[in-house]
C-alpha cells in the first residue's frame, strides 16, 4: 500500500508521512470491516442452523477435541501479544527485539496450523467430513454433516487467513531485517499487526461456537 523508500518520504499526493499514515489507517480499518462482514455471514448462518438443530449441534460438537482447541486459543492469543510487542519495539527503535517478536508470532502461527492439521486428519479418519462426504455412522443426530460443514468452512477460511497472515509477517520480518522501519516509519508493521489481531479475534468467536456448544 505505502512504500517508504529512503529517498521519498511519502507518496507524491500526500502532504507528509503522517498524512499518508492517516489515510493508510483508514484504509486498513475499512478492510478489517470487510473481514468482519465476511465472517458475519458465516456466524449468522451458524446461528440459524444452531437454532434449527440445537440437539444435533450439541451432540456433534463432542467430536471436536476441546484440549487441542484450547491450546490453539492460547497459542493465538500469545501470538497477538508478541505482535503488539513487535510494533512497540519498532516504535522504540529496537529492530532486533521486533525481529524476535515477529519470529515468535510466526512460530505461534505455525504451531496453530500444525495442531489444526492433526485435528483435521483425525476428523478425516473418522469420516466426519462436510456435507456429502460425511461418512460417520456413530453420531445419531440427523443432519450432523451440517455441523462439520460449518466446522470445516469456518476453520478453513480462518486457516487461509492465518496463512496470509504468516506471509505478511514473513514479509515484515524481511523488511525489518533490511532496516526499512524506524520509530517514524512503521505503517506496514502496524497494518499487519491490525490484520493479525482480527485473525485472532475471529478465532476467539470460532472457538466457543464450535468447541463449546451449549
Amino acid at each position: 500500500m505505502s512504500s517508504t523508500h529512503a529517498k521519498l518520504d511519502h507518496a507524491h499526493h500526500f502532504n507528509s508521512a503522517d498524512h499518508e499514515f492517516a489515510a493508510g489507517k483508514i484504509g486498513m480499518w475499512l478492510f478489517l470491516v470487510t473481514e468482519i462482514m465476511l465472517f458475519s455471514g458465516l456466524f449468522v448462518g451458524y446461528g440459524i442452523f444452531h437454532y434449527i438443530y440445537p440437539e444435533m449441534f450439541r451432540e456433534a460438537h463432542h467430536e471436536l477435541n476441546k484440549v487441542l482447541g484450547s491450546i490453539n486459543t492460547i497459542v493465538l492469543l500469545s501470538s497477538s501479544l508478541t505482535m503488539a510487542l513487535a510494533i512497540n519495539a519498532i516504535q522504540r527503535d529496537k529492530p532486533e527485539l521486533a525481529k524476535k517478536m515477529l519470529a515468535f508470532t510466526f512460530l505461534c502461527a505455525c504451531t496453530f496450523l500444525c495442531i489444526k492439521f492433526f485435528e483435521y486428519s483425525h476428523k478425516f479418519h473418522e469420516g466426519l467430513l462436510p456435507g456429502k462426504f460425511y461418512s460417520n455412522t456413530e453420531l445419531k443426530a440427523p443432519n450432523a454433516a451440517l455441523f462439520f460443514s460449518f466446522y470445516f468452512v469456518m476453520t478453513g477460511i480462518h486457516g487461509i487467513h492465518v496463512l496470509i497472515g504468516m506471509a505478511c509477517i514473513a514479509w515484515i520480518y524481511i523488511r525489518v531485517n533490511r532496516g526499512d522501519f524506524d520509530s517514524h516509519h512503521y505503517n506496514a508493521v502496524e497494518f499487519v499487526g491490525l490484520y493479525w489481531h482480527i485473525v485472532d479475534l475471529v478465532w476467539i468467536f470460532l472457538f466457543p461456537l464450535l468447541y463449546l456448544v451449549v
Binding site: E35, M37, S40, G41, P130, K132, N143, A145, S149
Partner: peptide
C-alpha cells in the same frame, strides 16, 4: 463481503456438498 462469502458457500456447495442451502442435507 456478504455476497463474497455467500458465493464462496455456493461454490463449496457444488464442490463439497456442504448442504447449507440444500434441503436434502438439512439446509
Amino acid at each position: 463481503p456478504v455476497i463474497g462469502i455467500t458465493l464462496l458457500l455456493l461454490a463449496a456447495e457444488r464442490f463439497l456438498g456442504i448442504g447449507f442451502f440444500d434441503p436434502k442435507l438439512g439446509g
